[in-house]
């Protein structure tokens, strides 16, 4: 076993935790491993503890890094780039910004008002909830580094191409008036004030509390659904709906995801359970991406700042992108 694998098992996959919980349930409490309930409880405890542990540590580290890149600074940097380079940078900066979708609308208005190209703004907007470093490491922990890497690369690609396509459609007039560019848009530099090390540490700690408080319920629901899929629903039922014999598997996964409101952390346990049931990588990727980018609450938020036609264009472009990704990865899934 290489050093990388050892560290991965110890820190990210936490195989010791799985063994400990099995020991606790089976040897100490005396639950029977044949029971469905034992499996559900084991999956639930293991996933819940693992995800909260990882999330707290990762958010702390990443928020500390993020405190050097407030959105005000991002905007200043992005304003210098146009065309596909702008899209790429927009998507990359999207991976560095706060996890909260409630701050995405002020950021959207701030970007468009300052005259940033619409495509760059959308690249940022698509990648922001979809990809970040915390979700990358948690994906690695739950689904292995291959799928984590694919998810991140494809997610950024979707953001770059999606933004570039929207740029091509010349829909600058389809933003609502209060988000339209204005000459000399007010630019606050206050967030760039010098922060001391203890300020940053405190900011990072506050972020951990804040994010856990916001997402814990989605994580618990996600883990519960994952545990039920994993242990109580027969594999052939899941296979029949989402398996490789059903041509509409990716489309069904995408449509199922839309009414679900969860962030990426809540969807990971569900994705894990689906993969364990032998569902294709493409179908699972499509499901995760659709939950994070196409949820109804975020569409409602967006409708505050863009007109209906642009909203429909955005949904169409992202949906087509997700479908292509899903079917493509199912077709080449023999690599994994």
């Amino acid at each position: 076993m290489t050093l990388f694998e050892t560290l991965n098992d110890l820190l990210l996959r936490m195989t010791w935790l799985d063994e400990f919980i099995r020991w606790l349930l089976v040897d100490m409490i005396g639950l029977n491993t044949d029971w469905t309930a034992t499996g559900i409880v084991q999956f639930f405890l293991y996933d819940t503890i693992k995800i909260f542990l990882l999330l707290s540590i990762l958010i702390f580290i990443l928020s500390y890094i993020q405190s050097y890149f407030p959105p005000e600074r991002t905007r200043r940097i992005l304003a210098k780039y146009h065309g596909i380079r702008g899209n790429i940078l927009g998507a990359l900066f999207g991976t560095l910004t706060p996890f909260c979708s409630c701050s995405s609308i002020p950021i959207f208005i701030g970007f468009t008002k300052a005259g940033l190209p619409l495509g760059v703004t959308f690249s940022f907007l698509i990648s922001s909830p979809l990809v970040d470093l915390a979700s990358f490491l948690i994906l690695m922990s739950f689904l292995g580094w291959e799928i984590a890497l694919v998810y991140v690369v494809v997610g950024i690609l979707l953001a770059v191409v999606g933004g570039a396509v929207i740029q091509r459609m010349n829909m600058e007039t389809k933003i609502k008036d209060h988000a339209k560019p204005v000459p000399d848009a007010p630019v606050s530099t206050v967030a760039a004030f010098e922060l001391t090390t203890s300020d940053r540490r405190r900011y990072a700690f506050d972020q951990v509390k804040d994010i856990i408080r916001r997402v814990w319920i989605y994580i618990l629901i996600g883990v519960a659904i994952g545990a039920i899929i994993h242990n109580a629903i027969p594999a052939r039922v899941i296979q029949w709906i989402l398996g490789s014999d059903n041509f509409f598997n990716v489309a069904i996964a995408t449509v199922l995801a839309i009414p679900m409101y969860a962030d990426i952390f809540g969807t990971i346990p569900i994705a894990e359970a689906l993969l364990l049931k032998g569902i294709g990588v493409g179908t699972v990727l499509a499901f995760m991406m659709a939950v994070t980018t196409l949820s109804i609450p975020s569409m409602v938020l967006l409708s505050n700042v863009i007109k209906k036609r642009l909203l429909i264009t955005f949904i169409t472009v992202v949906t087509i992108g997700i479908l292509i990704i899903g079917y493509l990865f199912n077709a080449i899934s023999f690599i994994f």
Binding site: P71, E72, S103, I107, I109, G110, A191
Partner: peptide, 8 residues
């Protein structure tokens, strides 16, 4: 937005 801030 009129205050020029991006994060709340």
């Amino acid at each position: 937005a009129s205050y020029g801030i991006l994060s709340t």
